[in-house]
Simulated assay, not measured.
Amino acid sequence: MSSYRDVMDGIPSIDGGYADGLIEFIRDTVRGSGCNGVVIGLSGGIDSAVVTKLAVDALGAENVINVFMPSSTTPKDDHRCTSEFSSSLGTDYRVIGISPMVDAFSSALGLDDGDRLEKGNISARCRMIILFDIAKRTNHLVLGTSNRSEMMMGYFTKFGDGACDVVPIVNLYKTQVRELARIIGIPEDFITKAPSAGLWDGQTDEDEMGILYKDLDNVLSRLDSMGDAKISEITGVSLEKVSEIREKVRKTAHKREPAISP
């Protein structure tokens, strides 16, 4: 997995050799665990599509379970595109709606319709309950779909979409995931779709974070080696935004670490 090539924007480029390394990693990990296959939440986004294709190439479609878990705010087209994608690969495709679970938790906790973030977190955790339950009953591992950009920004729900047994693409920035997607043949619809966690109507990652992934990745990739002013000068991102990103990475460190113990 050492097939990195330096590119002008500072984010390493990848080639087919990197994809081969990830496929081998998934195959070796599943075999070593003694499990039969993997379970992946298929959302309609690029990350879950990439992880699914890598898993199919590693294990065979018969050993991959895809679960589409719509809520009341999930775009209707996501059902179509996930179903077609799973069918094209031959994976076991299952649909389990989470609205009754989310509504039950929201009612018990006294949440109202304005509590969008809280309901989004509940939705993410309900989905992970489903995936781990299926994994337990089928002797499968849960493959996570988080990428490096999301992890560094803490842009995931703790014990929700951040929970998994194996996380294959966690070392790749979002822009690298797009590059990998084209290498392994992911349909263009997945690649060009605006990234969204689907937490509420019209929600997109880039709108919520206030920056495009290509600019975010250029900042994130330089945080360890440069000061904020230099990063701003090189990337064209405002100094205020660069400092905000650095602080976000610092404040969300707890989400990337094991539980704190004495």
Rank of each mutant, 00 (worst) to 15 (best):
T82R: 07
I98C: 06
D207S: 13
F68P: 12
D115V: 05
R246C: 09
D28K: 15
M69T: 08
A259D: 11
S149W: 08
L216E: 00
M101Y: 06
R246E: 02
I183N: 13
I191M: 05
L143Y: 11
E206G: 03
D217A: 00
F156T: 02
Y213L: 05
E24C: 07
V50M: 07
G21H: 11
G44V: 01
H140F: 13
G45M: 15
K230L: 15
P195K: 11
D165W: 10
C164K: 10
F85M: 12
D6P: 00
S3A: 08
A61G: 01
G160I: 09
K136S: 11
D228V: 09
Y155K: 08
G97T: 11
V142D: 06
D77P: 01
P75G: 11
R5Q: 08
D201Q: 04
T29D: 09
A135G: 04
L172H: 05
A253Y: 01
V38Q: 08
P70W: 00
I134P: 09
N139C: 08
I14Q: 07
Y155V: 05
A135S: 08
I26H: 05
R148N: 13
I11Y: 04
A124T: 01
Y4I: 09
L239N: 10
G154D: 13
I26A: 07
E24D: 14
V249L: 11
N139T: 03
M152L: 15
M152C: 06
L223N: 06
C81V: 15
W200V: 07
E24A: 15
T145W: 00
S88R: 14
I96Q: 08
